[in-house]
Amino acid sequence: MIQPKIIDSINLHSLNKFLSVSDRYYKHKYCVKFTSKEQNLDQRVSFHTNRICMISLGENHTVMKNNKKILKINCSIDNKINRLLNATSGKGKRGAQKLTENSVLCYIECEDGDIYPVYSCVQGKLLEINEHLISNPNLLITNPVSKGYIALILPTLNLYESIKNSMLDADEYSKI
């Protein structure tokens, strides 16, 4: 049986628009509850089909809106917790730092002296902080949902639906 060539084995008509990897495999939701009158701290939580969550800044976040220059990403939350020292073992990710939705993942320190906390938004286990942000923190602004993602989190599975439903869809968020 002769099989079609690879280029003929796919429907090219569905490809008229380039979709980035994050748009193809992730559902973007927005967590706006940390925003106050003084500052916008909106965050994007991108849910992979396997439930892993990728954290980034929302379009309206003060840092994004004002196109601020970032000096560094500080992952030392307090004397005890340094997010960069997170280590997991096994497929159950034993030893991962535990997060609540209000846990701080890191602080964004800008050149103008302003400091913004980034929150976990989801309860679960920290998989990793994007280490590329340490050497190149401004990726966070230029490539928010790809190379500049902030963190990956494995959400607590029995809370997964309620976490997801508590956040805004992309079209709801764009109307704010």
Partner: peptide, 10 residues
Amino acid sequence: PIRVLHRRPL
């Protein structure tokens, strides 16, 4: 890969 990270060690 993130794609399989839910069922494989990091």
